[in-house]
Deep mutational scan, measured.
Amino acid sequence: DLSALRVEEVQNVINAMQKILECPICLELIKEPVSTKCDHIFCKFCMLKLLNQKKGPSQCPLCKNDITKRSLQESTRFSQLVEELLKIICAFQLDTGLEYANSYNFAKKENNSPEHLKDEVSIIQSMGYRNRAKRLLQSEPENPSLQETSLSVQLSNLGTVRTLRTKQRIQPQRTSVYIELGSDSSEDTVNKATYCSVGDQELLQITPQGTRDEISLDSAKKAACEFSETDVTNTEHHQPSNNDLNTTEKRAAERHPEKYQGSSVSNLHVEPCGTNTHASSLQHENSSLLLTKDRMNVEKAEF
């Protein structure tokens, strides 16, 4: 173990290094160091905050020279020094078990990766560091076993998940096959086929009936047209017969005018059967003409 005197000496050296690497504005270890034209180094955030307070150039807090945003430059070497100082402080805390008085939040800088452990060898070769390295080497064999167990647990979990997924996939297939086998029997399929065939026959029977009705309507229309044509021909046949009657009536009127007047009046009210309204109107006109002729003949006879 380190003596108290040596611990104090190391602590004083760390404090001196820390004062050199402090920012003059925030009085902390410089984060993202930036250098000016006057070779003074500050935190990048502190300098941008200072420049944004005034429009135009501002003055350096140490030498009062003008500073602009374009004049600022990043210093990589200074950032490396800060990183190495942080590593020294971490090693000091691990070796002594004491917390550094002016320690900052170094938890963000710590890294437990194997590459980081290899890099620590180049920091300080001390008894405390050696003991700590031995402890780490002793704890390393235990870690692979834990990793193997965790991997086995994960693989077993994956296997159970896969088996569950396969079961879920197989179950719908089985149910679907069961439904297909038990849903419709052979008799049901035959009945469905016969039902479809009967429906098709009914459709075939319905369509000819409609065509037959249309044919019957067409035949009825044709018969009505033929009947009207026969009526017209009958009226045409009746007209010459009426003319013959008129000639006979004229002759009778010349011989017996008194008797014919009474008979002509009675004939006005008689309509021949089986004739249309057109034929009756023609008869009325003929009878009126005959009456006028008879009157003329009677007057001539009187004179």
Rank of each mutant, 00 (worst) to 15 (best):
H278F: 03
Q154W: 04
N276R: 00
R295E: 01
C60K: 15
P114R: 12
D200M: 00
E9I: 04
P33D: 13
S266C: 09
S35G: 10
L151G: 12
S58A: 02
E84K: 09
R132C: 05
S79T: 13
H284F: 06
V34Q: 13
K69W: 00
G262I: 10
C273F: 04
S287L: 00
N131E: 03
Q93R: 10
S139C: 07
T76K: 06
E28Y: 11
D184N: 12
Q125S: 04
A252C: 11
S241C: 05
H40P: 15
Q93F: 07
Y104Q: 15
V13A: 03
I67R: 10
S35C: 06
V232R: 04
I41C: 03
L151D: 13
V7W: 09
E258V: 03
K108S: 00
R165K: 10
H238L: 15
F45Y: 06
Q147H: 12
N191E: 14
L268Q: 02
H269F: 11
S266A: 06
T248R: 02
E8P: 12
E9A: 11
S156F: 05
T248V: 02
R70Y: 03
E28D: 10
K64I: 09
R6Q: 12
V82A: 09
K221Y: 00
Q138A: 04
E74L: 02
P257K: 02
N157M: 00
H256K: 07
P272G: 04
N242V: 05
C225Y: 01
R70P: 06
E299V: 03
Q283T: 15
P33E: 12
S266G: 12
A16E: 05
S139G: 06
C63W: 12
G159A: 09
V10H: 10
S216F: 05
C46Y: 14
S139Y: 03
F42V: 02
N243V: 08
S122G: 03
I41Q: 09
L51Y: 08
F45K: 06
C26N: 15
K37I: 02
L94N: 14
V232H: 06
Y260R: 11
V82P: 00
V10R: 14
Q147M: 04
C225F: 00
P57V: 02
D188C: 07
T275A: 01
E8K: 11
Q73L: 14
P208W: 00
N234H: 12
Y100P: 04
L146K: 15
N267S: 01
G159R: 12
V82H: 13
S264G: 06
L136P: 13
L81A: 14
P144Y: 05
R77D: 09
S79C: 06
H256I: 14
S264T: 02
E187V: 09
L27E: 05
P257A: 12
L2Y: 14
P144Q: 05
S35W: 04
C273M: 02
A279F: 00
S150F: 02
S58K: 12
I215W: 12
S71W: 13
I14C: 13
A101Q: 02
A133N: 11
T211E: 03
T96G: 13
C273R: 01
R169W: 03
E9T: 06
D294T: 08
I20N: 07
L245F: 04
H278N: 10
L21I: 06
K31P: 08
S122D: 11
L62P: 04
N267G: 09
I123F: 07
V34R: 09
G210K: 12
K31I: 12
S126R: 08
K44F: 02
P57E: 05
K55I: 04
E9G: 11
E229Y: 02
Q11Y: 09
L204P: 13
N131M: 15
A91T: 06
D231E: 03
K134T: 11
A16G: 05
G210I: 01
S216D: 11
K69I: 00
R255A: 09
R77S: 13
E249N: 12
V265A: 09
I123L: 10
T235Y: 14
L146F: 01
V10P: 14
K49Q: 03
K54C: 01
I41V: 09
H269A: 03
M47K: 10
A252L: 10
T211S: 14
V270F: 00
N276H: 00
R212A: 10
A220H: 14
K37G: 06
C63Q: 15
Y195G: 14
S122V: 05
Q59Y: 04
C225R: 13
V82S: 02
T248G: 09
M17N: 15
L268I: 01
V34F: 11
T207M: 14
S280F: 00
R77P: 14
C60R: 15
L62T: 06
T36V: 04
D294R: 01
Q209F: 01
T163D: 05
S150C: 03
V153Y: 10
S139N: 07
S150Y: 04
D218R: 01
Q138N: 09
S183P: 06
V265S: 06
F42M: 09
Q125T: 08
S183Y: 00
I124S: 02
S126C: 11
K87M: 03
H40Q: 11
F92L: 12
P33M: 12
K259I: 12
I14S: 15
E120S: 14
K44S: 04
L48P: 10
I41S: 02
R70N: 08
R212V: 10
T247M: 13
G210Q: 04
Q125A: 03
S126T: 05
Q80F: 06
H256R: 06
D244W: 13
P24E: 02
T76S: 01
A223T: 11
A252R: 00
I215T: 14
Q201F: 01
